[in-house]
Design a binder for these strands. Structure first.
Length: 230
DNA sequence: AACAATAGCAACCGCCCCGGT
DNA sequence: CACCGGGGCGGTTGCTATTGT
């Protein structure tokens, strides 16, 4: 079966995996003309690919200096930090990871955080249940077993067993609550802080960012002022 | 060994922004 | 000012490889 359904789209552009020959044509084009003007690649090289496809292939795969292989713990730390600050601004995060692409970072984040979903769902249930329990305590002293769904009861029992950490942390953002997850990544605080200090140097020293309100600098200020608690 | 589930990743899609006309 | 095309970006898809049963 052909990947992506068909070989060509409605405009006649080839789709799907790139061949070594196509890569070679694109590399030759960029070496002659530089990056940009992607829409003229097909005219200049005979490569039957859309400009967007060419750009994507170059940026994510062919560009010199791209790192291959697994992300280092330091890189993971930077991603975690910056994602906590900026959200899904993959291209912005990628600027602080030389040799890594936004697509790679995005994929990394997705694959690692997909694992969280059951945990998050559980936490959401627990939060809901906690609110319910509080309401029950507020409005009634009669805490005889009221009719509840069986899974709710199970969650309730689980919650009671687990040292009531949820109740203690219920007003913290989710990322702070999920200490079990964070401990998977962070074995010590130190390297993360080291990365943050160097990150701040980059920002202050090089004026990285768009200048649109200075959110990056503010964000680092926030981190340094103790916004992060591991 | 065979099958199923999951992880990893390349590539596409659709939207938005920006500059040129 | 409106329109258009190119480029950039985040989200999503679907194939392959790996791991588990």
């Amino acid at each position: 079966m052909e990947r992506w359904g068909s070989v060509c789209d409605e405009k006649g552009w080839r789709k799907g995996p790139w061949t070594p020959e196509e890569d070679k044509l694109l590399i030759e084009y960029v070496s002659r003309n530089g990056e940009g003007r992607w829409s003229s690649v097909s005219n200049s090289t005979g490569l039957n690919r859309s400009g967007k496809s060419c750009r994507l292939r170059w940026v994510n795969y062919l560009r010199p200096g791209l790192k291959k292989g697994h992300l280092t713990p330091q890189e993971e730390g930077i991603i975690i930090e910056l994602h906590a600050l900026w959200g899904n601004k993959w291209s912005a995060i990628a600027r602080y990871l030389p040799g890594r692409t936004d697509n790679e970072i995005k994929n990394y984040w997705r694959t690692h955080f997909k694992k969280r979903k059951p945990c998050e769902a559980k936490q959401e249930k627990r939060r809901t249940l906690t609110q319910k329990l509080q309401q029950e305590q507020t409005y009634s002293n009669n805490i005889d077993e009221s009719p509840q769904a069986s899974d709710e009861i199970n969650i309730k029992k689980e919650t009671e067993i687990e040292h009531s950490t949820v109740q203690n942390n219920q007003f913290l953002p989710i990322m702070y609550q999920d200490t079990e997850f964070w401990s998977d990544f962070i074995t010590t605080d130190n390297y993360l802080w080291d990365e943050l200090w160097s990150l701040n140097d980059m920002i202050v020293g090089n004026h990285v960012g768009t200048g649109g309100g200075g959110c990056e600098g503010d964000a680092i200020d926030y981190v340094q002022s103790g916004g992060y608690i591991f």
